[in-house]
Computed example of a mutant assay.
Amino acid sequence: MSRSRPTTPDAAVQVTVRGDVPDDAVRYAEAKVAHLDRYAAQPVLASHVVLTVSADPAVAWPARAEATVDVGGTLVRAHAGAADVTRAVDALEDRLRRTLLQHQDRERTRHRWTGVATEGEWRHGDLPTERGPFFPRPPETREVVRRKTFALAPMTLDEAAFEMDLLGHDFYLFTDAATGKDAVVCRDGDGGFAAGGETTAGAGMVEVRETPAQLTEAEARARLELSGEPFVFYLDPDTGRGQVLYLRYDGHYGLITAAGE
């Protein structure tokens, strides 16, 4: 069951709660989201926050905070999960602030994600992360020495590219918010961005509608070795979730896996 708490004119934030959400957490969310208008490129017309607490003890992150902010007619969304509502709101505030700054940056330049900047303009992505050379380890001696599994948060292609930029990574595995499919965004080598998987394009990016291959780990290794690319994005044949096998700079492999349902 969900309920909505009316907002005050000053806060201009509507909060909907689902589950056992304390009233002080609602007030906390109102205050945290209301002050973010300072980061908006245009006037904030409305803000809606959804706070959810799951009663399922098996859920790793039972508290979830989601927000939709209407910035001059453009909807900006963010969400976060945590062990409790307060932490989820804190994480939501941080992500929403960064998303609003990203939107503000787009308002300043139409070339935010195209790899084209005007003279004297600095953008995320102008200078890809500098890496040292790969250790020339023979393919037959390579091993998967690092494995990570993440619960992927749904986001837009723009949001994923922005997260990748903030982290300084060369690729970023995510679930596309529009299609519900796992996808990957990466640098295209020319200061821009490219995407793989069934995803919907963001501003200045090419729409991609391509179902990645289902591969075993051994098949992914073989493809990576033959292609000479830094990583391969594929679907696990058992779970159907996205995976990225990548070449580490010590010459071994790393594997990033989307957590199953």
Rank of each mutant, 00 (worst) to 15 (best):
M1G: 15
S4I: 15
S4F: 07
T8N: 05
T8I: 08
A11N: 07
A11L: 08
V13R: 05
T16M: 02
G19Y: 02
G19C: 09
D20M: 05
V21R: 06
D24H: 15
R27E: 15
Y28N: 04
E30A: 03
V33T: 13
R38C: 05
R38H: 06
Y39K: 12
P43S: 09
L45C: 08
L45D: 10
A46S: 12
S47W: 02
L51A: 08
L51R: 03
T52D: 12
A55T: 14
P57G: 01
P57Q: 01
A58H: 11
P62W: 04
R64Q: 14
T68I: 11
T68M: 06
D70F: 06
G73E: 04
A78M: 02
H79M: 12
A80H: 03
A82W: 02
A82F: 05
V85S: 02
R87A: 15
V89G: 02
D90G: 08
A91R: 14
R95S: 09
R95P: 07
R98V: 10
T99F: 09
L100F: 07
Q104F: 13
D105W: 03
T109G: 12
R110W: 06
W113K: 05
T114Y: 10
V116I: 09
T118W: 12
E121D: 03
W122Y: 12
R123H: 15
H124A: 15
E130W: 06
R131Y: 02
P133D: 15
R137C: 11
E140T: 09
E140M: 09
T141M: 10
E143V: 05
V144R: 00
V145A: 00
R146H: 00
K148R: 12
F150I: 12
A151K: 11
M155C: 11
D158F: 03
E159F: 01
E159L: 06
M164D: 07
M164W: 03
L166C: 11
L166G: 11
L167I: 07
F171G: 06
L173E: 03
T175M: 12
A177E: 15
A178D: 11
G180N: 05
D182C: 04
D182N: 14
D182Y: 05
R187Y: 05
D188F: 06
G189V: 05
G191L: 01
G191E: 04
T199I: 05
T200F: 08
A201E: 10
G202W: 01
G204Y: 06
M205K: 08
M205R: 14
M205E: 10
E207K: 07
R209T: 13
T211V: 07
A213D: 14
A213K: 12
E217Y: 00
A218I: 08
E219F: 01
E219I: 06
R223K: 13
R223S: 11
R223I: 03
L224H: 01
S227R: 10
S227V: 09
G228T: 04
P230M: 06
F233I: 06
D236K: 06
D238N: 15
T239K: 09
T239W: 06
Q243K: 07
Y246L: 01
G251K: 02
H252V: 03
I256V: 08
T257Q: 13
E261Q: 07
E261R: 14
